[in-house]
């Protein structure tokens, strides 16, 4: 079939491209390694020059603190405490955000009715709700969960809303001509699949953003990794502070990588 020539051309080009790509990748990895070593050396040099571990702990001090925090079991306990408000807050906020976003994106009535309210509430940083969290729930797991949920809500609300708004009109016309006549089926068969890339972007963004909120909420006293950062610093154990900063980074990198895998599988139809 002659109209397939484009595909043929692509597959012809693949072998050469692959060689070049792996060469470039190798170079990039080497440079990355070089940069990391350079960073660690600069850090070590800085720590030696300052010579005050409570101002700047050396990488070695951090590494040994990491081992002792891990070995004592404290690290996993603190991580579990953080996850105990991070996960429920993320799940509830994401679920509600997607539901309201899809609802408002789909229904003009709902959109008109709720737009003024959402426009005013959305710019309020989630942490500003800490006052209510304290008064209503108290600053423990409950309060932190509440604030994380608010953060996740707005991110997912906005992405779901714009995802639904940008569903191509053509697709809905075609679906109607193929027997889709009620709203629920249209949402399930056309709107949600079409908006999935944007909805997933929202989920992924909130996975990262909610860690910021977790740490901030814990600075107010909720137990967990963020609290540990401040707590250690107050004892001038800056090496321990850095350990917990790195824990957050590690958890984010792992969860983001997992989510990318899921996302890649769900969006296999793109490209």
């Amino acid at each position: 079939m002659s109209i397939e020539s484009a595909t043929e051309r692509e597959s012809d080009a693949t072998p050469g491209t692959r060689v070049r790509v792996s060469g470039a990748a190798l170079r990039r990895h080497l440079l990355g390694l070089l940069g990391t070593v350079g960073f660690l050396l600069a850090w070590q040099a800085g720590a030696m020059a300052i010579a005050k571990p409570f101002l700047l702990p050396s990488p070695f001090a951090v590494a040994s603190a990491f081992v002792s925090e891990l070995a004592s079991g404290r690290m996993l306990a603190k991580l579990a405490q953080s996850l105990f408000h991070y996960v429920p807050g993320l799940v509830v906020g994401t679920g509600l955000g997607i539901a309201v976003g899809v609802g408002m994106g789909w229904s003009e009535t709902l959109d008109s009715a709720l737009t003024p309210v959402t426009r005013v509430l959305r710019p309020i940083p989630p942490l500003a709700w800490i006052a209510f969290a304290i008064v209503w729930i108290g600053i423990g797991h409950g309060g932190a969960t509440f604030i994380v949920a608010i953060g996740a809500f707005w991110i997912n609300f906005y992405n779901a809303y714009s995802g639904v708004e940008s569903v191509p009109e053509d697709l809905q016309d075609v679906a109607a001509s193929l027997g889709i006549h009620d709203d629920l089926r249209m949402i399930r068969k056309v709107v949600l699949p079409s908006a999935t890339p944007e909805i997933l972007t929202g989920v992924r963004t909130s996975i990262g953003q909610c860690w910021m909120i977790v740490v901030a909420a814990e600075l107010f006293g909720a137990p967990g990794v963020g609290y540990q950062i401040i707590n250690a610093a107050q004892n001038l154990a800056m090496d321990v502070s850095v350990v917990y900063m790195l824990v957050i980074s590690a958890v984010f990198l792992v969860s983001d990588a997992l989510f990318r895998t899921v996302e890649g599988r769900l969006l296999a139809w793109r490209n």
């Binding site: 697709l171 109607a176 001509s177």
Partner: peptide, 21 residues
């Protein structure tokens, strides 16, 4: 009065569902 299965539609820009094979 409304689109239905008795009239199949074909568009210039295809209108294919990109998430479906």
């Amino acid at each position: 009065t409304e689109p239905d299965m008795d009239r199949g539609m074909v568009f210039q820009e295809y209108g294919l569902f990109p998430w479906r094979t």
